[in-house]
């Protein structure tokens, strides 16, 4: 909501001009990054353990290959993941099942990191609806994922958007706080400053049903990215579900992917 106001106002009354500036950054303390997922489709599932790097560094993210990594679920299954180098660890047998809660355990030296995520029941996705609207002379595309939200509250959805095989580095989350139990009509809040859709573009949308903590993580990221009048919260490391101060996220979610061409 705020995003829309800011875009219109900046566009209409201010001669907003942008320039790249150089800033002095505070030194960075490298932190452990843990990223893992379990989905409802067959594995392998991957856990990646690395370290963060300074903002202006251009090198790669150093992987940690000395960790002991395991995942267990609330049905009594447990698997120790096998290191593949570059900080990557994989499963061989674990199966992701909707409704189960998964616990990730990572031990690096003396430090133990744990995370928990519950895979929600899958909400079937029907299609991607695209609306074409004219806003201040430009054609704007509204992308609306079509699904029927279950009557019970507490459903959270995350979307990963790919445009012409290029990942769009933006975070999209929807929930049923305001409307619950209906066909979704809300569009994705896409920041189209650096992103222009046109007729014939192919888009792919991965739809994830996620738990509350995972949703909070991505909602926070989306809020930080929103700038302008009324937008932009004070940035911070988003609250995550991993203990002991590691950054990153462990997400058990369902996944479905749909594609279409822009009309």
């Amino acid at each position: 909501m705020k995003g829309i106001i800011s875009v219109i106002v900046v566009g209409l009354i201010f001669c907003g001009c942008e320039k790249t500036i150089s800033l002095k950054y505070k030194g960075n303390t490298s932190r452990i990054i843990i990223e893992g997922e379990v989905t409802n489709v067959a594995g392998p599932y991957w856990v990646k353990i690395s370290r963060s790097i300074g903002l202006t560094d251009t090198g790669s993210y150093p992987g940690i290959d000395t960790a002991v990594v395991s995942i267990n679920d609330d049905a009594g299954n447990r698997e120790v993941l096998v290191g593949q180098g570059n900080g990557m660890y994989r499963t061989f047998s674990l199966a992701g099942v909707e409704g189960r809660t998964y616990t990730l355990n990572v031990t690096i030296g003396e430090q133990v990191y744990t995370a928990q995520s519950r895979m929600p029941l899958r909400v079937p996705f029907d299609s991607i609806k695209v609306e074409k609207v004219r806003v201040t002379g430009d054609t704007q595309y509204n992308i609306i994922p079509v699904y029927i939200d279950p009557a019970e509250r507490g459903n959270n959805y995350r979307y990963v958007l790919t445009l012409n095989n290029r990942l769009v580095n933006q975070h999209f989350v929807q929930n049923d706080d305001v409307k619950s139990g209906f066909i979704n009509t809300d569009r994705l809040e896409i920041n189209d400053d650096d992103l222009k859709f046109k007729r014939g573009d192919s888009i792919r949308l991965e739809v994830q049903c996620i738990d509350k903590n995972v949703a909070l993580y991505y909602t926070t990221l989306a809020q930080i990215a929103d700038s302008g009048p009324g937008g932009g919260t004070t940035p911070n490391n988003p609250p995550n579900n991993i203990s002991n101060g590691a950054l990153g996220l462990f997400s058990a979610h369902t996944t479905q992917t749909m594609s279409r061409t822009m009309p």
Partner: peptide, 28 residues
């Protein structure tokens, strides 16, 4: 007084910024 990122990392193929102390930086 604002908060600029100090570092970065990747989650799900997207770059995420790492922050340290709140409002430790300044707008010009």
């Amino acid at each position: 007084a604002v908060t600029f990122p100090t570092g970065k990392y990747v989650v799900d193929d997207m770059v995420i910024y790492q922050y340290a102390r709140r409002n430790a930086d300044r707008m010009p």
